[in-house]
Simulated assay, not measured.
Amino acid sequence: RVGVFAGITKTGYELYGPELWKKGAHIFPQISFSSVANRISYLFNLQGPSMPIDTMCSSSLTAIHEACEHLYRGECEMAIAGGVNLYLHPLGYVGLCANHMLSADGRCKSFGKGGNGFVPGEGAGVVLLKPLSKAIADEDPIHAVIRGTSINHGGKTNGYTVPSPTAQGELIRTALERAG
């Protein structure tokens, strides 16, 4: 019983549709977020929970949180958790620019004076998680121990894409409390 928890927010494949149609293609490029997690479960015959997680910027961390919760409840014995974020078509950037979301100077200044937007990043990362007692018993190389996780939402702020320093502080406090 291995769970798969895939943080994913966007793909961009569908943006290639009009370009392909002009060339005579009769396809609609798309991906279902559930396919990201479920394809892994299918290919490796994994029979634990298998789900995509889309919480925007926090998708990967939320996937890890959900994996930890499922492990804690015994719903899986191990979990593959992580995320992917790729900008596969230029229109992804056009939309961010049109909504004035990108940093004008190309620098992130989260909660800092002069913050004027964010700088998108791309990447993929995955970790294999299992209960510490099981990892020790199996003599696995242990690279880190997750002692506590937590998730929340910032509620209403100065703007839909503006984080709440208060809510993020509460989130950190809760995670530290859970970690002891």
Rank of each mutant, 00 (worst) to 15 (best):
G106P: 09
A137Y: 10
D54V: 02
A79C: 03
Q168N: 08
G17V: 13
V84P: 02
L96H: 05
L91F: 15
P29F: 09
P18N: 13
Q47G: 05
H143M: 10
V36G: 00
G123V: 11
G114F: 14
I146P: 06
G3V: 00
I142G: 05
K134V: 04
E170Q: 13
P49Y: 01
F28S: 14
P131E: 03
K156A: 02
I142P: 04
H89I: 08
A167S: 15
P141A: 07
G125P: 12
Q30N: 14
G12Q: 07
V162W: 01
E77P: 00
N38S: 10
K109R: 15
L176Q: 13
G148L: 08
I172G: 09
V126F: 14
V2M: 07
S164G: 07
L102K: 08
R39I: 02
V162C: 06
G12R: 05
G117E: 08
E139H: 15
K22Q: 13
S60I: 03
C68E: 00
E170V: 04
L61H: 11
E69Y: 09
N99H: 11
A179E: 02
E19I: 11
M101G: 02
F28V: 14
C108N: 07
R39W: 05
F118D: 05
D138R: 12
N38G: 06
G17W: 15
L132T: 11
E75M: 01
L20F: 13
F28R: 15
D54A: 09
G83R: 07
L46S: 02
V127I: 13
S41D: 00
R147L: 06
G3H: 01
V4D: 01
G92L: 12
L15A: 13
P165I: 03
N158T: 13
G17L: 13
S59C: 05
G82Q: 06
I136N: 11
W21F: 14
K23L: 15
L46K: 00
Q47F: 02
G74P: 04
S34L: 09
P52F: 07
